[in-house]
Design a protein around this nucleic acid. Structure first.
Lengths: 150, 150
DNA sequence: GATTAATAGTTGATTTTGTAACTAACAAGC
DNA sequence: GCTTGTTAGTTACAAAATCAACTATTAATC
């Protein structure tokens, strides 16, 4: 009713503000998938991400995972600890640099990874299906640029 | 070196997985701006978001803000409490439904909102400048659709 | 109109994250 | 080879988010 003393909406639209839109889209897109790894495997988001990187790229150190996925080392450390407890991965001291450990999925870990990856692929496909191939390709390029990954 | 016993990268690329990309881009885009409202006003992300919605849409209830911004009611509640303490907003019991309160920015709150909005606009423009106008328009449409806002 | 269900919002307990300080191992400079 | 600096990873403590239970009010049902 009394919007008269408000700063006049001007031309600014919150609904078009990129950080806001990115956040909403990211939130929404991870929500559904979160149910899977959370309810089915009791995993946290960081754990799922670490598992995913290991499944995807093979043997890595915690440092490498953190750098690649932009996850802080304390979060990686805790995720690795939990995944280790659940026997999803093994930790082998690197004899060339005894500060770091080479992490690798166990058969159990790989099985979980494969199932989750399958679901992820379906999910990605469903999202992509909302647009044309060209649009999705452009979207990925833009997002990658915005994430400053290139 | 020994990638032989790994589940063969197949055609799946984590770096192209949409929820992952969206998350990275959203994270990156809010990081720099976070410094502003955090360091300059000691605000939390949720507080900034509540302030922003109020400044943008005028008088609202906590419920409305939560629904619009996909923020859980406990987070909204605490953010509103803090913004109230700082005299950024006033809370008026709605006499038509005495469970809810009509929230509105004070002049102080509006001033803060306006400054932050200005910075946000510049930030948005800088992000948009990475692409052509057409690309950005498409990006906004796609993000809005992915956020299931339409 | 009394009872039950639903809703707006708050609060306290638990979980997760973020920040700093720490250990252990390596690297560089002298 | 010994001090100084750096790096991989962990841990302790503080801050924040999540979850469950709660109050107050309204709506629905009988």
């Amino acid at each position: 009713m009394t919007e008269t003393n408000l700063p006049e909406n001007d031309d600014f639209e919150l609904r078009s503000f990129l950080p806001f839109l990115l956040n909403q889209a990211a939130e929404q897109s991870s929500l559904e998938f979160q149910q899977v790894y959370k309810n089915r495997y009791g995993m946290l988001r960081t754990e799922w991400r670490v598992l995913f990187h290991l499944g995807n790229s093979g043997e890595m150190t915690a440092k490498q995972i953190g750098d690649l996925a932009l996850i802080h080392k304390t979060k990686v450390s805790r995720a690795v600890a939990k995944l280790g407890q659940r026997r999803y991965l093994t930790r082998t001291r690197d004899e060339r640099d005894r500060r770091s450990e080479r992490l690798a999925l166990t058969p159990t870990g790989e099985a979980v990874y494969r199932e989750l990856r399958g679901i992820a692929e379906q999910y990605d496909a469903r999202m992509a299906a909302k647009f044309t191939k060209g649009e999705v390709a452009l979207l990925r390029v833009m997002l990658r640029r915005l994430a400053a990954m290139e």
